[in-house]
């Protein structure tokens, strides 16, 4: 582990006086490791910002989309959401509630429809109506189910084809309560789709999401957002200093 090596180096050089001082060094090392992967959400300034949201079951995908919709709407943007989770019971209705709450338009078909077809519809609608932001919600899936991961690749492919360019963000939503399995999630989702950033949810609990450090070290996937509750404004940009601080508190 690079962190431990770095810490060892610095302990040797700086000879910290007490435990507090060692902790401070460790905090600095972690923040230093995370700083390069901390980055804000990508935005397409002169056109449509297109995002695909992926993750395991119950990670917080739909809620994060709802919070993002709120953020974009309060910036006066026109937001379209594609309801491509056609599998989980009432997933479409859940998204529609968020649409009503935030004033975003939800593009949906019936339950059981082909998710790629919904994504296609949503992309087309976003283009035709001159939307500023397109977000496509997907069904939760365990990263080990290869056929479902294949389905996800297809949804992504369809979006890229329709837009004629890469997406601005493919966001992996990760539950902070997850332990080391988060690393497996990041690895396998990245094999299926080009994950461009992570949204770490449920940091309002007692879990600190330490697995982010391992992910940053191994995969260098940027961390973009953190979820800190269930309300529309419980979403923050990722702050490596604050994160390192909380991790060691």
């Amino acid at each position: 582990m690079r962190i431990i090596d770095g810490l060892r180096e610095r302990v040797k050089e700086e000879k910290p006086a007490d435990e507090e001082a060692v902790k401070r060094l460790l905090r600095e090392e972690i923040a230093a490791l995370l700083r390069p992967v901390a980055s804000p959400l990508a935005q397409n300034r002169d056109g449509l910002t297109a995002m695909l949201i992926v993750g395991v079951n119950g990670a917080g995908k739909t809620t994060t989309i709802g919070k993002l919709a709120h953020r974009f709407r309060s910036q006066g943007k026109k937001v379209i959401i594609g309801a491509a989770d056609t599998f989980r019971a009432a997933a479409i209705e859940q998204l529609q509630v968020w649409g009503d709450r935030t004033g975003a338009t939800v593009i949906a078909q019936q339950a059981g429809a082909d998710p790629a077809a919904v994504a296609f519809d949503a992309a087309q609608a976003a283009q035709a109506r001159g939307a500023d932001v397109l977000m496509v919600d997907t069904a939760g899936r365990l990263q080990t189910r290869s056929n479902l991961m294949e389905e996800l690749s297809k949804v992504h492919r369809v979006l890229v084809n329709q837009l004629g360019r890469p997406l601005d963000e493919v966001l992996l939503v990760l539950d902070a309560t997850t332990g080391q399995n988060g690393l497996s999630q990041a690895r396998l989702f990245r094999e299926a789709v080009p994950v461009s950033g992570i949204a770490l949810t449920k940091l309002d609990g007692t879990a600190k999401g330490g697995v982010i450090v391992a992910i940053a070290e191994e995969l260098k996937v940027p961390v973009k957002l953190v979820g800190v509750g269930e309300q529309v404004d419980d979403l923050q940009d990722f702050d490596p200093e604050a994160f390192a601080e909380a991790l060691l508190a």
Partner: peptide
């Protein structure tokens, strides 16, 4: 949101 509906389905 829609938790009731989910159970009904």
């Amino acid at each position: 949101p829609a938790a009731v509906k989910q159970l009904q389905v």
